[in-house]
């Protein structure tokens, strides 16, 4: 199937900074692609390039196979949320959606539909200047959905949402992808994408660090490690090492074992009468997988260092 978004060899300089350095990736329809990297990695710049807002020095960005600027009624092809704070404060949320709708030849009916979808019924007729960040995110999402587009692109949509809002946003994104839409969601916090993204594009300093499915990434990061909780730490370490496993202890009473499957560990401990409380296959969190992935990435480390230095 044709990619929802395709980015090929993007390069862009801002003065002495190479913001994008040969970035290439694709967003598939029907799934949520997480777009991850530290602040300043080039996520927002990439999104502006996809929208034809910023020009690139090299490369192309396509939305369902066509440059964004050549699309007629672009909001019916790609809905985007770049900056939820980009509102005229004295205009009501509903009127904000209304001018956007008019620009696409859409009417007031569609406006009321997306207001309901975004759960903004009560706030829609108030001035946007008085909205909380969470309400602005909802308004931005309503704007993105206005054209009922097959592709959505959201920059940090979880910012400013309360826990309830985060759950709502995740559910909404999943259902949008479930309808067959391609969804690109950026975040600088991997944990926000837990249970949401099925594919990840990780970038650092304008370069691609990883382009992988979430399942694959977590599987690799888990690396067949097993957690053993036992009171008899030294005995357990001895018998497991004897059986050929690599053992490390993270804290008193807990060992991390690799090189042996969970079933084999249970058998070895039982055979040697070593008592244990729990043996469980370790499953890495997305956050851990991300850290694992980026540990060795020069681009990433350098970017992260620069980020923390600034």
């Amino acid at each position: 199937m044709e990619p929802s978004i395709e980015v090929i060899g993007l390069r862009k300089r801002f003065g002495s900074t190479q913001a994008l350095d040969g970035l290439t990736f694709a967003v598939r329809p029907g799934q949520i692609t997480g777009f991850v990297g530290p602040n300043g990695a080039g996520k927002s710049t990439t999104m502006r390039v996809i929208l034809g807002l910023d020009a690139v020095d090299e490369g192309t960005a396509l939305v369902t196979g066509r440059p964004y600027r050549s699309l007629h009624r672009p909001l019916t092809h790609l809905g985007s949320l770049l900056d939820a704070a980009a509102l005229q404060p004295s205009r009501t949320g509903r009127n904000h959606l209304l001018w956007l709708a008019h620009s696409q030849g859409l009417g007031v009916r569609r406006v009321d539909e997306v207001i309901e979808q975004a759960g903004l019924q009560t706030a829609a007729r108030r001035r946007a200047g008085g909205y909380s960040l969470g309400m602005r995110q909802r308004l931005g999402l309503a704007a993105a959905m206005l054209g009922d587009p097959p592709v959505l692109m959201l920059d940090e949509p979880f910012n400013g949402l309360d826990p309830e809002g985060i759950v709502w946003m995740r559910g909404l994104l999943r259902s949008l992808a479930g309808q067959g839409r391609g969804v690109l969601v950026s975040s600088h916090l991997m944990s926000e994408l837990q249970d949401t993204a099925t594919h990840l594009v990780v970038i650092g300093r304008g370069r691609l660090v990883a382009d992988t499915s979430v399942a694959e990434l977590i599987g690799e990061a888990s690396g067949g490690r097993v957690t053993v909780r036992t009171a008899a730490r030294s005995e357990a370490t001895a018998v497991l090492a004897g059986a050929g496993a690599t053992v490390s202890s993270s804290d008193a009473g807990t060992l991390t074992v690799s090189g042996l499957a969970a079933e084999a560990i249970v058998a070895v401990l039982t055979r040697n009468s070593v008592p244990f409380a729990e043996v469980s296959a370790h499953r890495a969190s997305l956050e851990e997988a991300y850290m694992e992935l980026t540990r060795d990435s020069v681009e990433f480390v350098a970017a992260a260092t620069q980020e923390s230095a600034s």
């Binding site: 009624r73 008019h102 030849g105 859409l106």
Partner: peptide, 25 residues
Amino acid sequence: DAPFRSAAPAGRAGFGALLKSEWTK
């Protein structure tokens, strides 16, 4: 695997739509 189909009404949005949009603004 089914492709997404937009529910947005088909149509054109020419310069008139742009004018209407800016006037609404």
